[in-house]
Structure formats: C-alpha cells, structure tokens
C-alpha cells in the first residue's frame, strides 16, 4: 500500500514531463506547482471558490487548491504553461477577454477542457463550465464571446 508520512520523492506528470519532486502530504497541488515555478496557477482564495488555481487533471478541470499534490501522482496534469498554441489564448487576446490577467489561466484551462469534452457545447453548457471561475475585471461578455467564437471555429475546422 502506498504510504507517505513525510517529505518523499514522487513523480508528477506535468505538461507531458515526468517531474521528480520532493513533497509531503500536507502540500496541495497548487503549492507544489508554484514551488516548481509554474506560477500560472494562482492563489485566489485557497477555498475552491474563485477558480484561479484551476489546472487540468486527466483533461478535466480541477481546483488545485483543494487537491493534495499526492492525489495527482499517476495522473496527467496540464497547467497554463503547458497549453501551447491553444486557439483560446489568441481568442482571449483579440476579444479583450481579460484585464488584470489573474483569472485568465484558470479560464483558459476550463475552455480547453470544455473543447475536449463538449466541442458542441450549447450556451447552457458553456455557462455551466464558465461559472466555476470568477473574473472581477470584465463583465464575462468578452470571455463568453471568445469561447463561443473559438468553439465554432474548432468545429468548422473539424468538419472541413
């Protein structure tokens, strides 16, 4: 049986790389990612309420502030730093879908996961997914437009 009681070396698969880290049970995944310099996942509330800490685990969005780092062993973790050339990133830029940028990595990862699991997402599904994240700077209209525009593009590209 797997047992950890103090700092120990484990491997975490982060952005396609197997990273060896020395961690202890009390550390959340958010703590560990940030200690590795992957500061794109942010501390906004450490209570699962704001979504700034969102990463993907096995392609689903997870709030890393409420996940023990050890829970992520053996799973595929995707952080914003690993999101290379996602069409959502450019869409956010061209739609002005962020201002201070603090919530942006979390939103982008939710969008990325949505496009994997619900590429045909209707308005209700888009709303349901985006409701996991708080943006204090925008009014959500730009984020919604960016997401809808890109999902449509992705679908059209697939059809073509």
């Amino acid at each position: 049986m797997i047992e950890y009681n103090d700092y120990q070396k484990v491997y975490l698969n982060i952005n396609g790389e197997n990273r060896s880290v020395i961690i202890k049970p009390a550390q959340t995944l958010l703590d560990v990612l940030r200690s590795l310099g992957l500061t794109g996942a942010k501390k906004g509330c450490e209570n699962g309420d704001c979504g700034s800490c969102t990463v993907l685990i096995n392609s689903y969005p997870i709030k890393s502030c409420l996940t023990l780092a050890l829970e992520a062993v053996g799973k595929q973790i995707l952080t914003i730093e690993g999101l290379k050339n996602s069409p959502f990133q450019q869409a956010f830029v061209s739609h002005n879908a962020f201002q201070c940028g603090y919530c942006t990595p979390g939103f982008l990862l939710v969008c990325h996961s949505l496009s994997i699991h619900y590429p045909n997402a209707d308005d209700q599904t888009i709303a349901h997914w985006l409701q996991s994240n708080i943006c204090r700077c925008t009014c959500y209209q730009e984020i919604t437009n960016a997401v809808k525009c890109k999902l449509k593009d992705i679908l059209q590209t697939k059809k073509a």
């Binding site: 049986m1 797997i2 047992e3 950890y4 009681n5 103090d6 049970p25 009390a26 550390q27 959340t28």
Partner: peptide
C-alpha cells in the same frame, strides 16, 4: 499547505 502535517495512505 495545510497548517498541520499528516500521513497519506492509498489502500487498494
């Protein structure tokens, strides 16, 4: 980080 230490087990 949680403000206290604890052990973690993963039984099968």
């Amino acid at each position: 980080m949680l403000p206290f230490d604890f052990c973690y087990y993963l039984p099968r």
